[in-house]
Design a binder for these strands. Structure first.
Lengths: 107, 107
DNA sequence: TAAAATTACTACGACAGACATAGTACGATA
DNA sequence: TATCGTACTATGTCTGTCGTAGTAATTTTA
């Protein structure tokens, strides 16, 4: 039983999937999403940063400052164990949604 | 280029896919969704009827009364040409979303 | 035959994620 | 020195979903 409120919550999953590889920060995440989607998906800045806040509030990520010398300091995000679990659950949910949608969409 | 605001708008598509076969009404649509999803998706009544209103306001469906003798009269919905076009567009969009999501979800 | 379940809705309000708009701040490049 | 790229924050709006509740008629069952 899933809710209909789907992809809408999948930006968090997308971000977590990238943090799974390595800790990262806003701009890099944004670029990776654009690249990996072949330019088909460009996440909005406000959407991205509000996802970061939500992720951290839920304990799915932890943030820390990079040690860049000079320049604006970056906030890096690292996925937590709780975040990994959540990511797996969302992947499962995504597969279910695809299965559910199948009878309703044409080729 | 898609928006992140996805499945959330896909109830309309699901409903249209069923109206493509034949005109139908609330309860029947609801049952068909439950059946075709193998019980994995049960649409909420309020979600369903607000989708019906939206669909009609957008010109994707037309409604008419059934000719049941006695009993509460049903509102039937029929898909329009505009609705068919919209349905096709949403199917295409759905395929794109699946493609976009692929690199971010595990098996 | 009375009660409960099913069918067929409408109204209202809350919620959350996405996003438009705008602004701040710094460094590097032209 | 002006623009572009990087790195954000704040605020408010929009929309689809859904919780809750109520109405009303018909059908089933106890």
């Amino acid at each position: 039983m899933i809710s209909s409120d789907v992809i809408r919550g999948y930006n968090d999953t997308i971000i977590l999937s990238l943090l799974l590889e390595q800790p990262s920060y806003g701009y890099e995440i944004s670029k990776r999403i654009r690249e990996l989607s072949g330019g088909d998906y460009i996440i909005k800045e406000t959407t991205l940063y509000s996802a970061f806040n939500r992720l951290e509030q839920n304990g799915y990520t932890e943030s820390f400052y990079g040690n860049e010398t000079g320049g604006k300091r970056r906030t890096y995000y690292r996925i937590t164990e709780k975040g990994r679990t959540y990511y797996q659950e969302k992947c499962d949910e995504w597969h279910l949604i695809q299965k559910i949608m199948k009878p309703f969409v044409q080729f």
